[in-house]
Simulated scan of single mutants.
Amino acid sequence: MIFILFFLCTLLSYLYLKKQKKGKQKQRAKLLIPPGSMGWPYIGETLQLYSQDPNDFFAEKQTRYGNIFKTHILGCPCVMLASPEAARFVLVTHAHLFKPTYPKSKEKMIGPFALFFHQGNYHTNLRKLVQSSLAPEAIRKLVPDIEAIAISALESWASTVGEVIHTFHEMKKFSFEVGILSIFGHLDGKYLEQLKENYCILDKGYNSFPTNLPGTAYNKAILARKRLGEILSEIICERREKKLLGKDLLGHLLNFKTEEGQTLNEDQIADNIIGVLFAAQDTTASVLTWILKYLHDDQKLLEAVKAEQKMIYESNDGGKRPLTVD
């Protein structure tokens, strides 16, 4: 009896201590997780986000919980960062502790083979490939063509007398055309218009609520993504048939081989082309928009830029020789 009582006491003590330890761990975890609301099961706070202006949604959260708060959007638990210090922690000082992930609805839009959905050798090889294709040496050769796109855009804006020009939207159009030039070189007009039309639909539906019902923005975007894949497949087949591999990004993707001799299939090439377009467009357009704002607000800066441009123009014989960049 004594032995049995001793065994039961030991067992009960062990279970009690284990329960206490779990309680402390839960309490510690609660202290580490930022404040905020996770909303409804699975849906989270997605409906609240999409039923109002996103800026208002996040502003209310910041006011209530501070610059770091938790939420639940598109089926994913999230921690939102709204301070430079927190962003620096994630992106710079402790970047090795984090890895980029995207909601499945976003991954489906761009394509699962896009390099920023991967890590390891696949990511490293494709990243080097993209960087070399878009390096300053490669872009330098495209400067005259980029200049022509810029002049065309300026002439288009000048013709819209009395109308409001939405700078960011116009910069998105400009960066898209430059992106197409960098990826394909001089692309046939038919393909250019098809890519532009379907990519515009994809872009509009990218941040829409992921309801794949006929007529919804998300459904239209999914269908446009399918058409983009078909268009890119035609372009790839045409390049291969004519053996016009070129030195643009598409040429580099077609020529790519791993150390084992493996090449990229059409889906991998298409996903990475759309991924590069998507990654470059908004960020480039945003930077260009801010540049225009600063030039507008600072007249001394604007005059300095004009003087530099005049000097470059005169050094190229008044525009008779192609523009070069040092």
Rank of each mutant, 00 (worst) to 15 (best):
E137S: 04
E137G: 01
A138P: 00
K196R: 13
C237Y: 03
I231M: 02
D145Y: 09
G162P: 04
S182H: 08
N219L: 04
L129N: 04
G215E: 05
F168Q: 15
R239S: 02
K172R: 10
I165G: 01
K172S: 04
P210Y: 03
H169P: 01
E177C: 13
E170K: 11
L129W: 06
A224V: 04
A138T: 12
E238H: 05
I236C: 06
L134G: 02
G205Y: 05
E193K: 15
A217R: 13
P214E: 07
I201P: 13
V143L: 12
I236H: 07
A158Y: 10
V143D: 00
C237W: 03
S133V: 08
I235N: 05
L154M: 06
S159C: 11
F174I: 00
D145R: 11
K204M: 09
N125C: 10
L187F: 04
Q194Y: 10
I235Y: 03
V143I: 14
R127Y: 00
L126Y: 05
T160L: 09
T124K: 15
E163W: 03
R127N: 01
F168D: 15
Y218H: 03
A135D: 09
K172F: 02
K226D: 06
G205D: 01
S233R: 14
F176L: 14
S233C: 10
E177F: 10
L129M: 01
T211E: 07
Q131S: 06
I183R: 12
S182G: 08
V164S: 15
I165V: 13
P214C: 01
S133G: 13
R240V: 00
I201L: 09
Y199M: 10
I183K: 11
K172V: 08
Y206K: 09
E137V: 00
P144F: 10
A158L: 11
K220Q: 08
K190Y: 12
F184E: 04
H169E: 15
H186R: 15
C200T: 14
K196V: 12
V178H: 03
L223Y: 03
G179M: 08
S132H: 07
P136A: 11
K141F: 07
N207F: 11
F176V: 03
K141M: 15
C237F: 01
H186G: 03
K173I: 10
H186D: 15
C200F: 10
F168H: 15
G189E: 07
I151H: 13
S132N: 12
R227L: 04
F168I: 10
E163S: 12
R225K: 11
G179F: 06
P214I: 01
E147V: 09
S159G: 07
V164A: 13
P136T: 04
L192G: 00
I180D: 01
L195Q: 05
I151R: 13
I183V: 13
L126C: 11
